[in-house]
């Protein structure tokens, strides 16, 4: 289906475009960024690199959520929240995650 191809295209774009000064894995390991319940990456310790990384990743996530939402008739926020739950579950021990109350805690 058309949406599926679009989603695939988005995914391909995201995967290939990841050439950042700071890569996501090490940023999470250093505790600079962490996963949030809203499905987007948050900045734990602000630095230009961390904000640049989060802005780039979040823009790409949003495009992916939108493609999934359109394909499944869901709203953007529904998809984002679902992805947020998964991302927090998937976070490695020691990485920062945000509680629904808005607190950064180490998983």
């Amino acid at each position: 289906m058309k949406t599926t191809t679009r989603l695939a295209a988005v995914l391909l774009l995201v995967c290939s475009g990841l050439v950042m000064a700071l890569d996501l894995g090490s940023a999470k390991a250093q505790g600079l960024v962490g996963e949030q319940p809203d499905g987007y990456l948050g900045v734990v310790k602000a630095s230009p690199d961390a904000i640049g990384l989060a802005a780039d990743i979040n823009a790409k996530r949003r495009a992916a959520y939108e493609a999934i939402a359109k394909k499944n008739g869901a709203t953007l926020d529904q998809v984002a929240v679902l992805a947020g739950q998964k991302a927090i579950e998937m976070s490695s021990p020691g990485a920062y995650v945000k509680t629904p109350g808005g607190q950064w805690v180490k998983k």
Binding site: Y65, E66, A69, K70, N72, G73, A74, T75, L76, D77, Q78, V79
Partner: peptide
């Protein structure tokens, strides 16, 4: 004033 507006919430 806003005119000719189109928006979506994802699937809506």
């Amino acid at each position: 004033a806003v005119s000719d507006l189109a928006l979506n919430w994802g699937g809506i």
